[in-house]
């Protein structure tokens, strides 16, 4: 099993390198640093000197991959690729347009992101799996039928509507919680309730339907018939036999997003003014701050790959076939 996890870890490395190369190509090959400079400086200020200055300030005045002017190892290291892309592997993301250190910004913003994303995730999982279990338990009844209809309806509603509608109704009309903002410490809960609630409700439709399908898939299996032939009550059949088997496909989709919770949610954070990574990303996109977007892409991939590895590890917990091989 250790070898299995080790193999997974080793497999992650080439993928990260791939991500790194891809983002580098996207950011520096499609458009040249000159283009970037022109865009940032604005039409009025574009002079060759200004462009040169802009590039030099940010270290974009070097060659992309290979610096023939430098000597020794510096031929490789004194390049845009090494400085901007390869150094991300050691957590060095450079500076944003406003001159702040991206790495420090990221670490300080992870907390607020997590404060929203984690409760949303846990509560959402609990609610949707419970609902799906109820629908699957009462399969082929009116409850199940209308439950599925409701799910399709809910998943046809734009996530923007959930946020805007929820914010308008709860915060503005009923004035139960502040419309937006974030507080430190325990005080933060007032700001968190609404975004978490909206996040949970917004996910009910599609998740419930998805889990219900998984449960129904298991209900039809032979071992369920065996369990019934033993005279087990239906609740035991469901909670012991079906739920445990259904955990395997459920984990595939669930565990992988756990590390990504750090990234926060773009929409929720920007609507509610949460100083997390989601709103950081949105601000960077709007300000066309490429250094930040690049860093977020890389961190997102690292977290996703961490999620993949976590998924593999979680399999060993629920699936004995993997645990013993």
């Amino acid at each position: 099993m250790l070898a299995y996890i080790l193999r997974r870890l080793l497999y992650a490395l080439p993928i990260l390198i791939g991500v790194n190369l891809l983002t580098f190509a996207l950011f520096f090959v499609v458009n040249t640093p000159d283009d970037m400079a022109r865009l940032q400086l604005g039409v009025k200020h574009v002079t060759p000197e200004a462009i040169q200055k802009w590039k030099a300030e940010r270290g974009y005045d070097r060659p992309l991959f290979w610096n023939p002017a430098a000597g020794g190892l510096q031929q490789l290291s004194d390049t845009i690729f090494f400085d901007k892309s390869a150094r991300m592997f050691v957590g060095d993301f450079g500076q944003a347009e406003d001159g702040r250190d991206i790495a420090r910004e990221i670490t300080s913003r992870m907390g607020p992101s997590l404060a929203i994303a984690l409760p949303t995730f846990v509560l959402g999982l609990f609610v949707t799996i419970s609902l799906a279990l109820i629908l699957a338990f009462f399969r082929a009844t009116a409850l199940d039928f209308w439950g599925v209809v409701a799910c399709v309806g809910l998943m046809s509603i734009s996530s923007l509507f959930y946020i805007i509608g929820g914010q308008y109704l709860v915060a503005k009309v009923w004035q139960l919680v502040p419309i937006s903002g974030f507080g430190e410490g325990l005080d933060a809960w007032r700001f968190l309730v609404l975004p978490v609630l909206i996040g949970v409700v917004g996910g009910i439709g599609s998740s419930t339907r998805w889990y219900r399908t998984i449960f129904l898939e298991e209900v039809g299996k032979d071992y369920v018939r065996t369990a019934r032939a033993k005279g087990l009550p239906e609740t035991l059949v469901f909670f012991r036999h079906i739920l445990k088997n259904a955990m395997i496909p459920i984990l595939t989709g669930v565990v992988v997003v756990i590390p990504l919770l750090f990234m926060g949610s773009l929409l929720t954070e920007s609507f509610f003014g949460i100083p997390g990574l989601g709103s950081y990303t949105i601000d960077a996109i709007n300000a066309q701050d490429f250094a930040v977007v690049r860093s977020m892409v890389f961190i997102g991939s690292v977290l996703y790959i961490a999620g993949l590895i976590l998924t593999d590890i979680s399999y060993t917990l629920v699936d004995p076939r993997i645990r013993f091989e």
Partner: peptide, 28 residues
């Protein structure tokens, strides 16, 4: 390998990066 690499970049971010670059290409 290719699709794992593409998949491992969170969708919105990859789209954001690509769209930003496309926008720049169009603007310039």
């Amino acid at each position: 390998y290719v699709y794992t690499v593409l998949n491992s970049i969170p969708g919105v971010l990859l789209i954001a990066a690509a769209v930003l670059m496309m926008q720049m290409l169009i603007d310039t």
